[in-house]
Design a protein around this nucleic acid. Structure first.
Length: 275
DNA sequence: CTTGGGTCCTGTGCGC
DNA sequence: TGCGCACAGGACCCAA
């Protein structure tokens, strides 16, 4: 997408979680994408003319890139080697963008918890959806001292605190469960009652889990796909997520993974390893 | 202010 | 084979 023009925008319904902005298709058509970026779980496509396309995939959303193999750009390898061939439109293909180089970007989202909006690029950090987000967990702004301060006085379980995007931005249910396992912290522990030393371990575990999950192409439980349509494969190396009743992966640990529900979400953990 | 629960929506898998 | 129910990656919104 980056550097390309949006030659055609097809919008197949008026809304996802929220209504699309007025005349979205018309406002996208003919615009160049200056750069692609990301903040927390929001995808950001800066367009010429001062507008940014803001996208969230919700639970079940996916954006994939495809191309016609007979397209000259495809044959020349200009669309990248990862791009898969066009296939027939599928159920829940809500927005389709045809780029000037022949790439087709498809936003598919069965549950429609995703969203798209067009907002001013200027002052984007102040947008209501982005204002108040915590630091990026892979950035320099995320560190033990900061997390300690953010947890200070909080009585909520650490599981809930880490899912709170105002404390750290971009963690979801899977990666919180996996990070807590690796740092030996029970999901039920009150956030404000974790020692500084263990918070430092947690920060490292979060960074490691995210870096490894990205390296593995993400976690494809059902809907998620990489941009080229491939499955991620981090789900194959989960230690706890979705492993209720199965043995703990830690060498010599007799524990069995348990599942509990915290604020409506499943938490998976090893009662032996996590305190 | 913090915290927990309900809600949006479709699809799948399980027990009966 | 069919039916009802639980559950699924998120996060807003409101009541307490």
């Amino acid at each position: 997408m980056e550097g390309q023009v949006i030659a055609r925008a097809q919008v197949n319904r008026p809304d996802l979680r929220w209504p699309f902005p007025p005349a979205m298709a018309e406002r996208l058509t003919g615009r160049h994408v200056i750069r692609l970026g990301r903040r927390s779980k929001y995808l950001l496509a800066d367009l010429e003319g001062g507008q940014t396309l803001l996208i969230h995939l919700g639970m079940s959303g996916r954006m994939t890139v495809s191309a016609d193999p007979s397209d000259p750009g495809f044959a020349a390898g200009q669309l990248g080697h990862f791009v898969h061939h066009h296939s027939m439109p599928e159920k829940h293909d809500h927005v389709v963008l045809e780029m000037g180089n022949g790439a087709r970007i498809t936003f598919n989202d069965p549950r429609r918890f995703g969203m798209m909006d067009l907002i001013a690029t200027d002052g984007i950090e102040g947008h209501r959806l982005l204002a108040g987000l915590g630091p990026e967990p892979l950035g320099n702004g995320f560190h033990a001292a900061g997390l300690l301060a953010a947890f200070n006085g909080r009585r909520a379980p650490v599981k809930a605190a880490l899912l709170d995007q105002r404390i750290v931005a971009g963690l979801g249910n899977i990666y919180v469960c996996e990070s807590l396992f690796r740092s030996g912290i029970s999901p039920t522990r009150q956030a404000g009652r974790i020692s500084p030393a263990r918070i430092a371990v947690l920060v490292s575990a979060i960074r490691d889990v995210l870096a490894q999950a990205i390296e593995a192409g993400g976690s494809s439980l059902r809907d998620f796909r990489q941009a080229g349509g491939e499955l991620g494969y981090f789900q194959h190396v989960f230690d706890v997520y979705g492993r209720e009743g199965q043995p703990c992966h830690r060498d010599g640990c007799p524990g069995v993974i348990r599942r509990i529900v915290q604020s409506g979400r499943s938490s998976f953990f090893c009662p032996q390893c996590q305190r």
